[in-house]
Design a protein around this nucleic acid. Sequence first.
DNA 1: CAAAGTAGTTGGTGGCACGTACTAACAGCG
DNA 2: CGCTGTTAGTACGTGCCACCAACTACTTTG
Lengths: 165, 165
Amino acid sequence: MTASHRPRQVADLGIVDGLVQLSFLVQGILGRVADAHDLTLQQTRLLGVLRDRELGMAQLSGVLDLDKSSTTGLVTRAERRGLVRRTAVPEDLRAVRVVLTAQGKRLAEEFAADVALRLNEAAADLTETNRARLSRLASQVVHHHADRQGIDLTAGTSASSRARH
Amino acid sequence: MTASHRPRQVADLGIVDGLVQLSFLVQGILGRVADAHDLTLQQTRLLGVLRDRELGMAQLSGVLDLDKSSTTGLVTRAERRGLVRRTAVPEDLRAVRVVLTAQGKRLAEEFAADVALRLNEAAADLTETNRARLSRLASQVVHHHADRQGIDLTAGTSASSRARH
DNA sequence: CAAAGTAGTTGGTGGCACGTACTAACAGCG
DNA sequence: CGCTGTTAGTACGTGCCACCAACTACTTTG
C-alpha cells in the first residue's frame, strides 16, 4: 500500500496496448461513475451532448454515431427516466427536438464533475508537465482522427457536424 | 468556421475531455475491428485473456471484472461460435477450464494484428517522440491505477485481489 | 400534384450485464 | 461416517443497448 517512493519507472506497454488499456480504464471509470448516479453509460453520453444544445433525433444519431432506431430507444428510455423531453418543432411537423429536463441538467453537471474528479485522480500520479503532455497528445490524436473522418468518409451516417446549426 | 486544412496546432481539450474522447476513439476502433472479424467487443476481450492461459470461470470473471453469471453467458455464446471450449478439470469435478479453439486462436491473432494496425494509424500523425511519450504516459496511468486497485495486470495471476464493490 | 426524400418509430434479433436462486462437489469437523 | 458450510458454475428473469428492415407521416422538388 505505502511503499511508493516517487513516480517509479514503469513498464512501457507500447502504444497499442497502452492506448487499449487506458481506454478500458477510462471507460471503466465512466461506467462506475455513471452507475453511482444511477445512469447508464449511454445515457451520460446523451446528457453530455445535450448539455449545451438541443438536437433532433437524426442529429443525435450523428453525434453519438448510432443508428436512428438506437437513438429512438435511448431517448425513449431517458425520457421515461425523466432525463430528457421530446419537444415539437413548429417548422417541421415530423421533427422532434430533444432537450434536457431540469433533472437531466442537474445529473449532467454532477456526472461531469464526478468524472473530472476521478480522472484527475487517475492522472494524479503524473507530474504537472506530464499531465499537460498527455492532455495535449490525447487531443492531437482525437483531432487528427476527427479530421481524417471528416475528410475521408463523406458517405453514410454523420458528416461530423459540429458547426452546423 | 475553420479552414479544413489540418492545423498543426490543435485545441487542447484538457486532461479530462482528452482522456474521455480518446477512450471513445479507441473503443470505437476496437469495436469496428471486432465487427470486421465478426466478433463482439467482449468476445475479443475473452480471446485476448485466453491467448496465453487457460482459466476457470471464476478467474475469468475476475480478470474481465464481470459477474460470474455474465461470464457464463459470454463463454456460452463464444462456445456456440466455436471460439472457446469448456474442458473438465480432473482434480475438481465442479470446475471448468476455458480454452481457445484453433479458430479462437486464429481470430485472436488476427484481431490483435488488425488492432495494432489501426491504432498505429490513429497515432501516425504524432512524431516518433510523441508516440513514445504517449505510450509511456498511458502506461504510467494504467500502472498507477492498477497499483492503487491492487490488480495484477501482468500474466498468470491467481485472480487473488478482486473485491471491487 | 406525384415522386422522392427526410424525420422518426416499430418490431424482431442478438448481445451483454446484473441479481437471485439453484445444483453439485469439495473441505472440515464432530 | 455424516453434517455443515463453502466454492464452481449454471439457469432464469429483467433491462439496456445495437442493429436491420419495414413502416408512417410530413416536406421538398421536378
